[in-house]
């Protein structure tokens, strides 16, 4: 195992972590501010990817496709907030899970009805395709570097939004005491719609960016959703900083575990059983990480106790 390979895998871990952050940030905002468990967050990721694929097919422009994904996911988010989610804030978590699970089914079958069952085509634009050579002679796909850059930029922008703007002040205030800010004259239901649409837009952006290197198909959001829940549990519910750290931890653990564990087992057993035991253990690793964090910090790394 060479150093170059290890660095490349760390970059891969960072990239998958950064994409997870876009999902987890929206989820944790919605959970923290509104106290809502939104299982349909993965559907918004899918909506973003399909909107991007359809726009790219119609116009040929990747930039327009990204804008379309943000717009479509934000619009879908706002619509379901107004139509369904709004009625759930005062219900218990079980009702929320039930209703948002129904939304998953509606979105999946709706998308299938509109676009058919076969995966759509969405590719990396030509100016971002291919690999670049980094220091130490590492060859790395330009598009994945772009993803890391975009993800970090979004993280910085979110941080500034929450800490420096009026909307951010309201979000933080809504998180700690929603009756009080309502009493101070803030239109809380509009605030909720805006936050929900913002989270949805981030999920849509993640869907579009990832869709270009993976497959755009019905049901693509649910596996990511599970990881995003793991992230916000590790990071602490409601904390953007926690979502960022949690995402990077999960991304790195998942990538490096899948790569290093089979090799570690290979030191003392034959290659094919090391591969199968190592791969099996690697797929449990992030849940072991989550359990470990919960033992020492039951409310997550950056959660309020």
């Amino acid at each position: 195992m060479s150093l170059v390979l290890l660095i490349e895998q760390v970059l891969n871990g960072l990239q998958s972590g950064v994409m997870l952050f876009l999902m987890a940030a929206g989820l944790t905002l919605v959970f923290g501010v509104m106290g809502l468990i939104n299982l349909a967050h993965g559907s918004l990721y899918m909506v973003g990817a399909f909107a991007a694929a359809a726009t790219a097919a119609a116009t040929g422009s990747f930039l327009l496709a990204l804008i379309a994904s943000l717009a479509a996911a934000a619009a879908a988010g706002a619509v379901i907030e107004l139509a369904v989610i709004r009625r759930l804030y005062n219900r218990d978590h079980l009702d929320q899970v039930l209703a948002t699970f129904a939304l998953i089914l509606i979105f999946s079958e709706g998308t299938r009805w509109l676009f058919g069952s076969f995966p759509l085509f969405l590719d990396v634009p030509s100016y971002l395709s291919g690999a670049v050579t980094l220091p130490f002679g590492i060859q790395y796909p330009l598009y994945r570097l772009t993803i890391i850059g975009v993800g970090l930029a979004v993280a910085v922008a979110l941080f500034l939004l929450v800490s420096r703007t009026r909307l951010g002040i309201r979000i933080r205030a809504g998180e700690s005491d929603r009756e009080m800010i309502a009493a101070l004259g803030v239109d809380i239901s509009r605030l909720y719609t805006v936050v929900f649409a913002l989270g949805a837009a981030l999920a849509g952006l993640a869907g579009a960016m990832v869709g270009a290197i993976q497959s755009v198909q019905v049901g693509m959001g649910e596996p990511v959703l599970i990881l995003a829940f793991v992230v916000i549990v590790i990071g602490g519910i409601g904390s953007i900083k926690g979502a960022l750290v949690g995402s990077l931890l999960v991304g790195l653990t998942d990538t490096l575990g899948g790569f290093l564990l089979p090799q570690a087992f290979g030191l003392f057993m034959d290659a094919s059983s090391a591969t199968s035991i190592g791969s099996a253990l690697a797929s449990m690793l992030i849940y072991i990480l989550m359990a470990g964090v919960l033992i020492f910090r039951p409310s997550g790394l950056f959660g309020r106790a």
Binding site: L5, S16, V210, P223, T255
Partner: peptide, 21 residues
């Protein structure tokens, strides 16, 4: 090299890096 991936896995960056090496 011989690698078993997760069923339904969508990101193969780690495996592609191994292939390259």
């Amino acid at each position: 090299g011989e690698v078993y991936t997760k069923l339904g896995q969508t990101d193969y960056a780690a495996e592609i890096a191994q292939i390259r090496a």
